[in-house]
């Protein structure tokens, strides 16, 4: 099968360019985190986890937000492309959410002297992770034509949890997470670079993941 005919002509060059940019930015952000950003006085080098943890959390919210938007678009237009975008974005969102859940306890052990505590944002984020894992279980267990509609409905319903995670530190007392992260100088610049790097990384991964969906759809049409 000639797969290049299945996706738009600009797809592969655009994907390659995005991957090159993403890898360069991620390497630059790691370099900045290791050498450019100063070592935090209280926590020491462990604080540098923030340059992975916070960008991953932001990308998770972007990914699940995209799933929500694409799910609405699918229910409105019934075009399979929107469902493909929703599912791909949700899959990548899960990867980044897992990074958040792994890097969080590593930070917590050093900052709060415990791997896990039932704190509002930790708890709400874990619930978010379980729910979106459920999205994939449900999606993979449906083989009928209703798969796309059910997944889209779920993509919309689960989005309700995102504002809860975002606002949990304000709505509930006893939160250990800060209400906002205030950084200055090199730390702030490194964090912004890391965010940009992981957002571009997400975009590159989305393009590659969507290409698979395009190929799968074309194969199904030909079958």
């Amino acid at each position: 099968m000639n797969e290049t005919s299945l996706t738009p002509r600009w797809w592969n060059p655009a994907g390659r360019a995005l991957w090159v940019t993403a890898v360069a930015l991620v390497l630059a952000s790691w370099w900045a985190a290791a050498t450019f950003a100063p070592v935090e006085a209280q926590m020491g080098p462990v604080q540098k986890i923030v340059y992975v943890h916070v960008p991953s959390a932001i990308v998770t919210l972007i990914a699940f937000g995209l799933t929500f938007a694409a799910s609405i678009a699918y229910l409105t237009t019934k075009q399979w492309r929107w469902d493909a975008i929703a599912a791909s974005s949700c899959e990548l969102g899960m990867v980044f959410a897992t990074v958040v859940l792994i890097s969080g306890p590593l930070w917590a052990r050093s900052a709060w002297n415990t791997w896990w505590t039932w704190e509002p944002r930790l708890t709400s984020f874990l619930i978010l992770w379980i729910l979106y894992a459920g999205y994939h279980v449900v999606r993979s267990s449906i083989r009928s034509a209703s798969r796309r509609t059910i997944s889209s409905v779920l993509g919309i319903i689960l989005f309700v949890n995102l504002p809860i995670v975002w606002k949990s530190v304000e709505w509930w007392r006893g939160s250990l997470h800060p209400r906002s992260v205030t950084m200055t100088g090199e730390m702030r610049e490194t964090l912004l670079l890391s965010m940009a790097a992981w957002i571009v990384f997400f975009a590159a991964a989305m393009v590659s993941r969507l290409r698979l969906e395009w190929i799968r759809e074309a194969a199904l049409e030909r079958a």
Partner: peptide
């Protein structure tokens, strides 16, 4: 009712209902 309608026709719907419903009902 919303999740039960979603799970209608799925295999292992009791498990799926628990997986989706319980976390949603935490608040």
């Amino acid at each position: 009712t919303l999740f039960a309608a979603l799970a209608r026709g799925l295999k292992a719907r009791e498990l799926l209902l628990s997986v989706l419903l319980f976390p949603s009902l935490v608040p």
